[in-house]
Amino acid sequence: MLLKVDVTKRFPGFVSQVRFATNTIRSGLFGPSGSGKSTLMHMIAGLLKPDTGRITLHDRVLFDSDQSVNFAPEDRRIGLVFQHAHLFPHMNVEKNLHYGYRRTKSGRNDLNPQQICHNLQLDELLKRNVTSLSGGERQRVALGRTLLSNPSLVLMDEPLSGLDDQLRYQIIPYLQRVTSEYSIPLLYISHNVDEMRMMAEDVFMMGDNGSIIAQIEPDELARGSKETQQRGYLNMIHLTEPSVSGMLVTYQWGASELILVNRGQPSSGLFGLSSRDILVFKAFPEAGSPRNILSFTVGEIRQTEWMVQVELLINSHRLIAEIVPQSLDELGLVSGMTVYGAIKASAFRKLY
């Protein structure tokens, strides 16, 4: 088992009692503020000693209250990336990156600093003072410094929560790339469902009582979250091969095509489409302004607190549309029937 945790920590008025095990490269820890996510991270990293319990990483015992085992943080080989980069202000980017690398014990520093810099696109920043960097650049440097310490596990505690959406989506591809390329296990801690969908293979949900209440797939977490109920489900669509025609761009979406507004310099990437920007028709709409009208097969139909989520299937792809319960009744939607989805060209936004 990659990471196995069974610990208890008591505070005045609050008890953190956590038990979980994961064997995936990228796991997520999701929960509201105050649920104990950061407390758990500190216990795994050795920054906070549990009262009782046991923590193992790659079958190596890091903490065991019964056996009086409690490795110091520097001996656990666990890297930390926080919301704030915590870079050394008196060092430039290059010296920050090499700090952890030079402190790694001989025989363990098998990662190539030049390759890490290339993957994180830090080559042009090496001589810069860290105080002159943007928030996104600082987080990339913090990630690089952590990776170069050659950790057995990386803990990321809300690493993107201080960034706006544009910067957040710029950083996520770097996180995905380096954790996959170097097979470094990751525990990603956040309360953002979209980050969980992009960063985690499975998600452990923490309740207000400081314990794990469920293990769930990231997409299921998103579909049932309060955030989704308030703003709609975000469909994430990989589009390729853009072809420009004036103010419009045609992208390949598997065997289908989607037409988007040309916002300048079109390129392949991941695009977002709200479930509430998809209009569902029982018959082909003869006239209308949407540039995209596609034939779908209805999959699962799921009632949420206020809306109805309708799964729309086309080839090997899936979209989620949301309609009001009255529309479900009027359209007579059932799984397996053919419907048409209409989407405006302006409804898409590029994530990265």
Rank of each mutant, 00 (worst) to 15 (best):
H317A: 09
S274Q: 06
Y233Q: 01
G224V: 02
E220F: 01
S211I: 00
R231D: 13
D329N: 11
E305H: 09
N292H: 08
F271A: 04
M247R: 03
G246E: 05
L294I: 15
A321K: 00
S327A: 13
E305A: 12
G336N: 11
F284V: 12
P290Y: 08
F281A: 09
G232N: 05
N235R: 03
G332T: 10
T304D: 04
G246H: 04
G264N: 04
S327H: 15
M247C: 06
S327T: 15
N262C: 06
E220C: 06
I301F: 11
P242D: 02
M307T: 15
V298M: 08
S256N: 12
I213T: 13
A214R: 13
T304S: 13
F271M: 04
Q303Y: 09
I293V: 14
A287C: 08
S289Q: 14
N235Q: 07
R318C: 11
S267R: 13
I212K: 02
P242E: 01
W253E: 05
S243Y: 02
E241C: 09
Q303F: 15
S245F: 02
D219Y: 02
S268F: 06
Q326L: 12
E217K: 15
Q230E: 11
E220Y: 02
D329H: 09
L234I: 10
E217A: 12
A283F: 09
P242F: 07
L313W: 02
M307E: 07
I301K: 01
R263D: 07
V310M: 04
V308Q: 01
E300I: 14
F284S: 10
L279W: 01
V334S: 15
Q252G: 04
I259P: 01
S295T: 15
E311C: 07
L221I: 06
A321C: 08
L319T: 09
Q303S: 14
P242L: 05
F284A: 10
R302C: 10
G224S: 11
R231S: 15
A222W: 00
Y251V: 01
W306Y: 14
E286Y: 03
S335T: 13
I314D: 04
T304Q: 05
F296Q: 05
I212D: 02
R318K: 12
Q309H: 09
S274F: 07
T228E: 10
S274H: 03
S268G: 14
F271Q: 00
H317W: 04
E220Q: 13
S211G: 15
F296L: 11
G288Q: 06
N315G: 12
K282W: 07
I314K: 06
L221V: 06
T228I: 04
I323P: 00
P290A: 08
E227V: 12
A255S: 15
S256T: 08
L312P: 02
S225H: 02
I213L: 02
N315R: 13
I213Y: 00
M236N: 04
L221Y: 03
L279F: 10
S327R: 09
E300N: 12
V261A: 13
S335L: 04
L239A: 00
V334R: 14
S245H: 13
G288M: 08
T304G: 11
Q309P: 04
L273P: 00
S289T: 13
G264H: 05
T297R: 14
G269M: 08
M247H: 12
F281G: 07
V324T: 15
N235F: 10
S316F: 06
D329V: 14
